[in-house]
Design a protein around this nucleic acid. Structure first.
Length: 530
RNA sequence: GGCGCUUUCAUCUAACGGUUAGGAUACAAGAUUCUCAAUCUUGGCAUACGGGUUCGAUUCCCGUAGGCGCUACCA
């Protein structure tokens, strides 16, 4: 009975999962998603998470992951930003299938290189009467906003403005030929309920009357704005799902209307608006300043601003492991449905499901990221960590065989959160202490310590086999026979070898140091400290 | 101001009408021990509020309050 019902339950769960996968991949379309940043500076950590979710979704459904550059704002363009973004994903291990620098059949993938395409579609909208030309200058609009509270360029106001709806056709033509700059605005029909079907939030309905006639195209630089470029590109690149931040939710109805205006509603992508990343404390979304203030990076890589010369710290340079960053980020707004927390990228791909994404913003609690980093240090082999640690050793002038580094790492890695902390925890393995910690001395280097340590040295020297496992019981026996206290003897020795009351088991240290070095250090300390 | 989204421990979250409301981080205590850590065990800590619907609401609906976002010829 129990078995059957359990089996039955599993079948139901399985069927439900299948159904979810089907609804998320409607119409048997090939899954194609994109990450489309603007090259206006370093990649924000929230952007990294958005890209990660897109990546997971694409892999989960065997689809394509596209990298598109949305550089339609020439004013905000920052040289080097594109390469920075690419480099960030290389470090994080997130791979794209097509797009800028990856190739593909839907290019070009840089919007500034698609001017002709957008022009064509703008003209289509104009001809169909779904959009119109407006000549109002920024100054005129500014004046209007000052004059009328809550001014909005829409059905209630557009007939008071200078545009192709209020001007005669020959006037419009003359203005353009005279070199007047203009924009193309979408003509929003008021009073319609526009529905956005969001995979995370369900149906979101908004009345078109609250929408304004958004600018789609600027004659000044012959470039579209985000909204137009986005819809045209997603359509042409056959994007099936738009997974992006919640800040886009208010403009999603506009996008639906654009798909409708073009007659592309049947192939419109499905939307999924992700919750935002919030400040660890206080109000608002996570910003660049929070990192500086609270001592953690908000960018994957260090960034040198070419204009201001300002340097913003990055996770890579701050010694975080990319796996830890990815793992932490993945769990900020998503969970696999059970208690698992440590997951590889491949495991996440397997487990990923948009329906398990949360709706509310998540505070960026970097304390947990530190914990993740520790977990990944423990998870990685001693050799992997040793490879990362070796350059630090060399920077301290220490060159030893890799096996030595590996052994040292194995001895102390459980006590660090960062690879960079390794040095402070094991420098004594590679160089004799040149000073002794005062607190440790006070506690363990008592009046008879020089004498007992000297005796211990003699005893150790007399042992034929220098091996911690052999030595330990013999030393314990010796201590007992002398009537000494284990703690006192061992810690006195520790201080002479390490320079402080810290470190792993003492016989691990003597093993690592070897007979000669151990005795040399101990005897040196006895003479130095008596 | 308008529009939209959102609300379970301090934080990330689980529980998709029936649980002593679970896990993790952080915090605290204990264990261990040759030190410091790590580790293990234990502990405290939550369903924003008010109405419904229901035999029964963390879960569904409405309202209030809080939070967040958008409201550019930026994305």
């Amino acid at each position: 009975m129990v078995k059957i019902s359990l089996f039955h339950e599993k079948m139901i769960t399985f069927a439900a999962q299948k159904k979810n996968e089907m609804t998320q991949n409607s119409g048997n379309r090939r899954v194609r998603v994109r990450f489309a940043p603007s090259p206006t500076g370093p990649l924000h950590i929230g952007g990294v998470r958005t890209a990660l979710y897109n990546y997971l979704f694409a892999r989960k459904h065997g689809g394509d992951f596209i990298f598109r550059i949305e550089d339609t704002d020439t004013n905000r363009f920052v040289p080097g930003a594109e390469e920075y973004i690419l480099e960030s994903f290389r470090w994080l291990g997130i791979k794209f299938d097509e797009g800028v620098s990856f190739g593909g059949n839907y290019g070009p993938y840089r919007q500034s290189e698609r001017k002709d395409i957008y022009k064509k579609y703008v003209d289509m909208l104009l001809e169909a009467g779904k959009a119109y030309i407006a000549f109002d200058t920024p100054a005129e609009l500014e004046a209007k906003r000052n004059e009328i509270p809550n001014f909005q360029y829409d059905a209630t106001t557009r007939l008071q403005m200078r545009n192709s709806l209020t001007l005669r056709a020959d006037e419009v033509k003359a203005l353009i030929e005279a070199g007047n700059q203009y924009v193309v605005r979408i003509l929003i029909e008021p009073g319609q309920e526009v529905e956005v079907d969001d995979l995370i939030r369900g149906k979101v309905t908004i009345n078109s009357s609250v929408l304004d006639d958004k600018v789609l195209y600027k004659s000044a630089d012959q470039l579209p704005t985000y909204h137009l470029a986005n819809i045209v590109d997603d359509h042409l690149m056959e994007v099936s799902h738009v997974i992006r931040g919640e800040e886009w939710l208010p403009s999603a109805p506009l996008h639906v209307l654009l798909y409708r205006a073009f007659g592309w509603e049947d192939t419109m992508p499905q939307f999924a608006h992700l919750p935002l990343l919030l400040k660890p404390e206080g109000n608002g979304k996570l910003s660049k300043r929070d990192g500086d203030r609270l001592g953690f990076p908000v960018f994957p890589l260090e960034w040198h601003d070419p204009k201001t010369g300002e340097i913003s710290s990055g996770y890579r340079e701050k010694d975080y492991l990319p796996e830890a960053v990815i793992n932490f980020l993945a769990l900020l707004g998503w969970n696999p449905g059970d208690d698992r927390e440590i997951m590889s990228l491949d495991e996440m791909v397997d487990l990923f499901n948009l329906e398990k994404c949360s709706k509310a913003g998540a505070r960026f609690n970097y304390q947990k990221l530190v914990w993740f980093n520790h977990e990944y240090i423990m998870l990685k082999s001693d050799r992997e960590i040793a490879l990362l640690f070796n350059p630090i050793l060399e920077s301290h002038g220490i060159k030893v065989p890799m096996e030595r580094v590996e052994t040292a790492v194995g001895l102390v890695k459980n006590r660090v959160n960062f690879v960079g902390e390794l040095w402070d925890n094991c420098s004594y393995l590679f160089q004799a202490p040149d000073e002794y910690d005062e607190k440790s001395l006070k506690k363990w280097w008592k009046e008879n310590a020089p004498q007992t340590t000297a005796e211990l040295c003699d005893f150790l020297e007399s042992q034929p086999d220098w091996n911690g496992e052999v030595l330990e019981p013999l030393v314990m026996e010796w201590i007992a026979s002398k009537g000494y206290q284990t703690g006192k003897v061992m810690n006195a020795l520790r201080v002479t070898l390490v320079g402080a009351a810290m470190g792993p088991q003492i016989f691990c240290i003597t093993d690592f140091l070897g007979r000669e070095e151990t005795l040399r250090r101990a005897r040196k300390a006895i003479s130095a400290l008596s």
